[in-house]
Design a protein around this nucleic acid. Sequence first.
RNA 1: GCUGGUGUAGUUCAGUUGGUAGAACGCUUCACUUGUAAUGAAGAUGUCGUGGGUCCGAGUCCUACCUCCAGCACCA
Length: 583
Amino acid sequence: MENMKENEYLSKLNHSCAHLMAQAVKHIYPNALFWVGPVIEEGFYYDMDLGGVTLTEEDLEKISKEMKKISKDGKRIIREEISKEEALEKFKNDPYKIDLIENFKEGEVISCYSQGDFTDLCRGPHVESVKECKHFKLLKFSGSYYKGDPKNKVLQRIYGVCLPSEEELSQYLEELEDRKLRDHRKIGKEQELFMNHELVGAGMPLWLPNGAIIRKELENYIYEKEKKLGYLHVYTPCVGTVNLYKTSGHWDHYKENMFPKMQVDDEEFVLRPMNCPHHMLVYKNKPHSYRDLPIRIGEFATDFRYEASGAVKGLERVRCMCQNDAHLFVTKEQIKEEFQKVVRLILDVYQDFGIKNYKFRLSLRDKNDKEKYFDDDEMWDNAENKLREVLNDLKVDYFEAIGEAAFYGPKLDVEVKPAVGPDVTLSTCQLDFLLPRRFDLTYIDSNGEKQVPVVLHRAIFGTFDRFTAFLIEEVKGIFPLWLSPTQINVIPVNNEYHLEYAKEIFDLLQDLGYRVKLDSREEKLSYKMRESVIQKIPVTVILGQKEMDSSSISYRVYGSEETITVSKEEFLNYLKERIEKKN
RNA sequence: GCUGGUGUAGUUCAGUUGGUAGAACGCUUCACUUGUAAUGAAGAUGUCGUGGGUCCGAGUCCUACCUCCAGCACCA
């Protein structure tokens, strides 16, 4: 999908269209004031103060119509440069513009762009004339906080997109519609993967049998991977005392995002939002020698986070989730190697799943924000450099994000784009010098001295919930054979004559551990075939007289129109191979 | 949490100015006995999100709460 921000012309076009929209809004709401109207990946938006007016669908159409009119009129877009003083004078009745202008340094040149009766403060650049902004669509509208601060008033924001031709626009809009079709919430319902119920609560998904199969396969898969890498898996409780989180420091930094505490007798408990404190105690259960390190404690751990009601979304953002979590306890010298192994594991797993659209984000602290981040510049610089080194060594592409670190340390996050909505973090690996200190963790080094280990927090799938959500959208509901809830559908051509043979094959496959269905309903073959395809079952087996006589198997693979007839052995080999190749 | 929208059968959705609910698919039954994307006929669908209120009468109007949706903010 085209990224408007990365293409110079599209970027100019969309930004100019934002101005065009502002002009149209000004015509309809003469008192409207404008904040900012940037270009984004999907097009543009403009934040506006309409003096208490909240927009409706009809208003959008009205604005759209006015925009067409102005565009047709074809006024040229003219740039004008003025001084800060002139700008302050020109926009003296507009507090939003004053706010923007005051951020300019003294003597800096400020530019304005005019088109007909509309002038806006703007850095530019713009297209030549409003005539070029002809093929646009206003997509959606909503509120947004002035300057992104919830304490401020809510401005009206309209999103739109503009393209050079009507064909490109309609193709773009079609792509947007297509994305909605693979929304995991839609597919999850269609394929009965998960459900929600208001009696259980928002953000508390119930995994249905089909979804549970996928999750179990994911658990088995990553468990085997981790086992081979020397991880030790544990089970720990989903609750902890408030004191546990006071010890870890989470209570001060994270309380707002936890479910409220429960009073039981004289103790206060909370549902755990993360597993690090529990795993710290697992480490602390006995003394450790440097020879024992690294120690890798893994767990498929259920956590609870009180996510804002407006944030919950399908399986992607939930209040009850299961992390594919692990904590690696390492010496300072082992940081690099262990971090590297984690990054390799991430790459390995993504390859197995054929995931290609992701970005590595190196999340760093904001040096000026001493409140959000644990204050120890030396520790931070050291940690951040180590992570950067590994990424450079492995030659992976990444971008750096200031202010995205955890309060205890920098991290590497893997960001992916869902079908609908903003990017989310899938995998994460976080470096932590703080927690081991808070829990007073030690190991004995080769000189017999006590040392504090370093902890790497890491989650490859992130949570099973979010990973499944992503996977559903990635494969568009067409799962590879090894993950598919139903793997094989066996259809006898005629129940009267072929059901017995079909049952024999069904039993054979089920005994071998395949998830297989026998469709023995009294329906036409074409009817059953249709359902098999609609249900996206990877392999459909058709058994009739021909197959019975030659003791063979005919099958059709999802996505193909072709029927292949082979011996039983060949068929079993085919299945085995596909499972091994994970396709 | 904020701004706005939304909620009707298992699913997708109709339901005019208030007069106790409809379609399609699915489901059930019967007939048909079938070789690769829909055989035909008949039948049953339901506390119209929940609680209050207005009214002779509420799916429809008012109100509170909840779910879900789009953004915003949040995301250790």
